[in-house]
Each structure stands twice: as C-alpha cells, then as structure tokens.
C-alpha cells in the first residue's frame, strides 16, 4: 500500500445531541486508508464503529445533531465542517454505501432497475436511456442471473442475498473511490455471505476502490480486510495489518475478542471463553482506559488518563494500552 492515502482521519470526535441526551460515540479516532485497501472496523454494538463512518457524511437520523471535530481528509478535501451540499454531492458519487438491511435501504415501491438507474442519472448526469443500459451492466457485474428480468422486479420479490447484490449495484453505480459497507453480510446466511464477500472483493479490485468494512465477525475480517481497527467505547484501541492483529493481538480487548471465537480444537461440551463484565453504556467519555473494568492486566495507572495510542513491539501494529506500552518501551 505505497500509494497516498485517500482517506485520512485524525482526532475525530463526534458528539450526538438529541432532545433527551447527549453521548460521545466517537472519541478521538484516527486512521488512514489507501486506494485498493480494505480497512475493517471491528467492535461491538455501541463501540461507535458505525457512527465513525456515517455521521461525518451527514447520515444521521432526524432529530439528532452531530457535533464533529477533528479532521477527515478525503481525496484532499476536508469533510469536517463541510456544508450539506458538498456532503450530498459526495454521498453516492465518490463514496458508496452498503447497509446491513437491504430491504429497508431499498424503495419497496420501485423496480430495482429504476433505483439503480436513478443513481447513474443523478451522479453521472446520464440520460434515462443511458442510465438503463448502465443499470443492466451493473446488474450483470454483481452477478445476478437473468439480468433483464431482475431489472423489472421489486425488492420484495428478491431474496436477501439478491437484494444485497442490488444494494451493491446501487453503491457502485457512480464508480465511487470509497465504499463503506456496514455489516453487509450480518443479515445473510453463511452460504450467501461467502458469495457476497467474494463479490465485494472482486468489484473492489476491478474498480480500484478503497473499502471500509464495518463488522463484528472476525471471520469476515480475516477473509476480506487488509487492515483492522478495533474500537471499544468510541475509541480505537488497536490497529494493524489483519494477519498480525488476528494472530498476535496486542490489546487485551482484542485478545479477549479473538480468544472468544470457538475453535475447532475446543472439546465438545467444554466451556466457552469470553470476556467478563459488560460493555460500558454510551455517555460521557470515560476517564482513563475504557476497558479497564474488564481487563485482567489492569494496573492503577490505567485509570488515570486516557492511554496514548502508540506503536507496539509487533511491526505495524499500534495499540492504546498503558501496560502494553510500558512493555513495548522495555523491549525497545
């Protein structure tokens, strides 16, 4: 990945303000992403993995105000503080989105062909006729059988896997440079999941896209991502190349997550490994390390201030853990 990063996020902090509460789901997150690279953002519900990607692009529910600070450079354009007009022109054009539940992301009352063509008309300035041709091309590209028939169908006539293929076709219609996929296979069956992941990788290399894969499934990460960012309580706790993070996790939380995956060697009827305690409830930022309460290695210093994010002994892997960083310093 020698090329210049296409996406550079620094110190991204997002506060969500509603009529009832205020929470900070993203707290000082930083990462980079190059062309053709896939970054997996891994975390549990409430870790901020979705908000990190969606709020800066103006994708927020009605009645929620997102206060964003920090910096997001996308294609050397600053997204933080951009007006809605700029963000709207980026969404769907330079940045494509795939959602977890394709049924609610598609318009149930319109034919899928029309929905794909619409994106081409809007962002590529195509005529209706040219857009229809483009839609057919895209349907073929996402590997749907009987493309002409599919174009004329409504979303409810398709199975979950086919709907997700339509979502992908819409997302790539304007040839985006970045594809954000939020749990693209979570709602799908394992046999279909394999097909969709393969398709995503294929399209990515064909279109030279960068991809952010938001997921909680380490199996998906292992198969599809070049780099991983693990998030906990709105903070990135570990980043690095997939093969190193998954085989030599450094942060205790990552260790716990990976250790919790049942393995083939585990005896039948043996106890499950997991983390003690429960994830923190979103709210005010936590003083010190957010994982401290559940961590087996915690020392008093962990609770004093937020651990800095530093390189570890494993090349390319950085983590935010005071205990680990002490060890890293000793090694060096």
């Amino acid at each position: 990945m020698s090329s210049e990063p296409i996406l550079r996020v620094k110190d991204l902090t997002i506060d969500l303000l509603t009529a009832h509460t205020v929470v900070r789901p993203v707290d000082g997150v930083a990462y980079e992403l190059s062309r053709r690279e896939t970054l997996a953002i891994v975390g549990e519900s409430g870790s901020g993995k979705t908000v990190t990607c969606f709020a800066p692009l103006g994708l927020m529910p009605v009645g929620v105000q997102a206060d964003i600070s920090g910096s997001i450079l996308f294609d050397s354009r600053q997204l933080v503080g951009s007006d809605n007009e700029t963000l709207r022109s980026l969404r769907g054009k330079s940045i494509g989105f795939i959602f977890q539940d394709p049924m609610s992301a598609l318009n149930p009352a319109r034919r899928v062909g029309r929905q794909i063509a619409e994106v081409a008309e809007l962002h590529l300035g195509m005529t209706a006729r040219a857009a229809e041709t483009r839609a057919l091309e895209l349907i073929k590209m996402v590997g749907m059988s009987d493309p002409e028939i599919r174009l004329k169908q409504y979303p409810h006539e398709l199975s979950g896997g086919l709907r997700q293929r339509v979502m992908i076709a819409i997302a790539i219609a304007a040839e985006p440079t970045l594809l954000v996929a939020d749990e693209p296979t979570t709602a799908l069956d394992v046999t279909v999941q394999a097909q969709i992941l393969r398709l995503l990788k294929e399209i990515q290399s064909r279109m030279d896209m960068a991809m952010i894969l938001i997921t909680h499934d380490m199996g998906v990460v292992a198969g599809a991502a070049d780099r991983v960012m693990v998030m906990y309580a709105g903070r990135h706790v570990e980043t690095g190349p997939t093969e190193r993070v998954l085989s030599q996790p450094q942060h205790p939380y990552t260790m716990g997550l990976i250790d919790a995956i049942p393995r083939k060697q585990d005896a039948i009827g043996s106890r499950f490994r997991g983390l003690p305690g429960i994830p923190p409830i979103l709210g005010a930022p936590i003083t010190g390390c957010a994982f401290m309460a559940r961590c087996g290695y915690a020392v008093d210093a962990c609770g004093e201030r937020r651990p800095p994010f530093l390189p570890t002994a494993v090349p390319g892997v950085s983590a935010a853990c005071p205990v680990l960083n002490i060890r890293a310093k000793e090694c060096a």
Binding site: T13, D15, L17, T18, A19, V22, R24, D27, G28, P61, V62, G63, V64, Q65, D67, A284, P285, T287, R306
Partner: peptide, 24 residues
C-alpha cells in the same frame, strides 16, 4: 422524534464543552 430546539442544543453543548476539557 422532537426536533432539537436551539435552547436544548446550547444546553447539550455546555455538557460536551466540559467533556472536551477532560478527555484531551
């Protein structure tokens, strides 16, 4: 969901302003 009034927004921002000092 009720829209955020500017008064509410200001109140919420006072909360986050305090957070920022603590977290950095």
């Amino acid at each position: 969901p009720k829209p955020l009034t500017s008064r509410m927004l200001a109140a919420r921002r006072r909360v986050t302003a305090f957070w920022a000092k603590e977290a950095r």
